[in-house]
């Protein structure tokens, strides 16, 4: 296999790490996640996309002799000698249920669904813990002012790993509050698209039915000819091709 392969290293290159207090010797180039696998763990908890997008592998660690507590994603953080590791694959966080169609995008909504927003101490422990480098304190401050648009904007890159909530002395679950703000913004505050509404009306009126029916009937040769004859909308930027 060309991937996920373990580094070819000699004994002398290995460094000690402590997985939940137990010592293992691992290659120094590995991420925390791959070091755990090198040590023999077949991960079930604490492993998701392995690419820094899903937030499954929140990890807290200390380095021997350094009093500071560090945080990171196991799939994105490289091991260091004498690292003491603890994954936090699950954390009990408060989450309200609500009907998004029956809300108003106001401060009152935010405060009634999550009254604890107003308990934020502004200490910034959340910001320090965020592996996405989001200024969690800043979006919570916006939330305290009822500024839903700013809260939505500043929290946008959140992967909901929960490390902010783990650290919060005011017992907030910031990431759950933030997604409420983003959904309120997306549904109620973002400007609506006129061209989208018009297209929906056109489809519902059956305006494309004939064209589609005709395309479906075409022989492969006719379809290829139509495809080749397409005019391509000019673009200023480069074309993208992924996902």
């Amino acid at each position: 296999m060309e991937t996920e392969k373990q580094s070819e290293v000699t004994e002398a290159d290995l460094i000690p790490v402590y997985i939940m207090g137990k010592r293992y010797m691992v290659p120094p180039t590995l991420t925390i996640m791959k070091a755990m696998e090198y040590a023999g763990y077949k991960l079930v908890r604490g492993c998701g996309c392995r690419g820094g997008f899903c937030g499954a592998c929140a990890t807290a660690y200390r380095i021997l002799g350094d009093p500071k507590l560090y945080f990171g994603l196991a799939c994105q953080t490289v091991v260091q000698p004498n690292m003491y590791l603890a994954q936090i694959p699950f954390f009990p966080a408060q989450r309200a249920t609500y009907d998004i169609t029956k809300l108003e995008p106001t401060a009152t909504t935010l405060f009634s669904i999550y009254p604890e927003v107003l308990r934020c101490l502004g200490c910034g422990a959340c910001t320090k813990a965020c592996p996405q480098e989001i200024d969690v304190r800043a979006y919570m401050a916006a939330g305290m002012k009822g500024d839903i648009a700013t809260m939505a904007d500043l929290s946008f890159d959140c992967i909901m790993c929960g490390l902010c909530a783990v650290r919060c002395p005011a017992e907030e679950a910031q990431y759950n509050i933030a997604i409420l703000a983003r959904r309120l913004y997306g549904r109620y505050l973002a400007p609506r698209s006129k061209h989208l509404e018009e297209r929906l009306e056109e489809i519902e009126a059956g305006e494309f039915d004939v064209a589609l029916a005709e395309l479906k009937r075409l022989s492969r040769e006719e379809l290829v000819a139509r495809y080749r004859a397409r005019d391509i909308e000019p673009t200023e930027g480069p074309r993208e091709e992924e996902d």
């Binding site: 998004i100 169609t101 939505a152 946008f156 983003r182 959904r183 309120l184 913004y185 997306g186 549904r187 973002a190 400007p191 609506r192 698209s193 006129k194 061209h195 989208l196 909308e233 673009t235 930027g237 074309r239 993208e240 091709e241 992924e242």
Partner: peptide
């Protein structure tokens, strides 16, 4: 959008839309 997803938009609500390979 009705569920609250935040699409990239112009200030007037027009969707920001780009090319992909083969479009």
């Amino acid at each position: 959008e009705d569920l609250g997803m935040m699409f990239d938009k112009e200030p007037d609500g027009t969707m920001v839309e780009r090319h992909g390979g083969g479009t």
